[in-house]
């Protein structure tokens, strides 16, 4: 393969700079003792202190993490079971209908999802707040889990199941000792994606959250609407750090899972 020309290198570098500049810009000014994002006075950590001293913000942070973890967990369970069920359907037409329905929420604009869930919750009388937010997050994370698990299930050799059955495994054994370990990388990927979907969601949460309950995205939105506050900058510095750590962690987990599954196959 040819080496990249100087022009292409410059192009890539510019794209990377544009992608990262706003993020580093935010983090840079989080250390600004002046109150604005354009005039760096001197280095300070007071905005980080403000984040940790703002108990309301901490509660919101905890809420966000709880919603993400719970919705990730529950949607992973329902989605994985659903994927196993879909694969077992023999009727190709039925299977395709389910798969198309599965994709509806993935391609739907989040405003539409938010608005329709708002109608739904109001109709069946669910109080807007933690429950409605959690249920919505579970609802829009399920299809992505299914899409992550499905390919793993499809590439699995059916004779593995037959072999296990022949060797006297019960149905439960087949599920827990053969199918689940095999599709584990897909399940992990689904769980991580569900987590990011939940953490990143703004529009759906914005619609179905009531007055008393707020997640980070919604809170940042209302803070940003009132103008610049360097507390948000400090928050983004922390979030960036956590994101990078999670990405590195995910990278290692994914790599290890790959190596383990390769060893199993050997």
């Amino acid at each position: 393969m040819k080496k990249l020309s100087a022009a292409s290198k410059i192009y890539l570098i510019i794209v990377f700079i544009i992608l990262y500049a706003p993020i580093f810009y935010l983090i840079f000014y989080s250390f600004n003792s002046g109150g604005s994002m354009n005039n760096f006075e001197s280095f300070t950590l007071e905005h980080y202190k403000a984040v940790f001293e703002d108990s309301r913000l901490i509660v919101i942070l905890i809420n966000t993490v709880i919603v993400a973890l719970l919705s990730g967990l529950i949607s992973t369970i329902i989605g994985t079971l659903g994927a196993i069920g879909i694969v077992s359907i023999k009727d190709a037409k039925m299977r395709n209908i389910l798969l198309s329905l599965n994709n509806v929420l993935i391609v739907s604009p989040d405003v539409v999802i938010g608005a329709s869930f708002l109608i739904l919750f109001t109709m069946i009388g669910v109080k807007l707040g933690f429950t409605s937010v959690l249920v919505s997050h579970i609802a829009f994370s399920i299809p992505i889990v299914v899409l992550m698990v499905l390919p793993k299930l499809l590439e699995m050799n059916k004779s593995l199941i037959d072999a296990a059955r022949d060797l006297g495994a019960t149905k439960r054994d087949v599920l827990t000792r053969v199918i689940l370990p095999y599709i584990q990388p897909g399940i992990f990927a689904g769980f991580f994606l569900a987590l990011t979907y939940s953490l990143d969601d703004f529009a759906v949460t914005f619609f179905v959250t009531g007055n008393g309950f707020s997640t980070l995205s919604v809170e940042i939105y209302s803070m940003a609407r009132t103008g610049i506050s360097l507390t948000i900058n400090a928050l983004s510095g922390l979030i960036f750090l956590i994101t990078v750590l999670v990405v590195i962690g995910y990278y290692f987990v994914a790599n290890r899972a790959k190596r383990v599954s390769e060893e199993v196959q050997r």
Binding site: L19, P22, I23, S36, L199, D200, A224, S236
Partner: peptide, 29 residues
């Protein structure tokens, strides 16, 4: 490199948008 492209997409959408309020502001860079 692809991983490095993906990382910014993991940062909350609102935060990235918020950054531009500062960048594009009247006294911004």
């Amino acid at each position: 490199w692809l991983m490095l492209i993906i990382i910014p997409s993991w940062i909350n959408l609102l935060l990235k948008t918020y950054a531009f309020i500062g960048i594009f502001g009247l006294y911004g860079p």
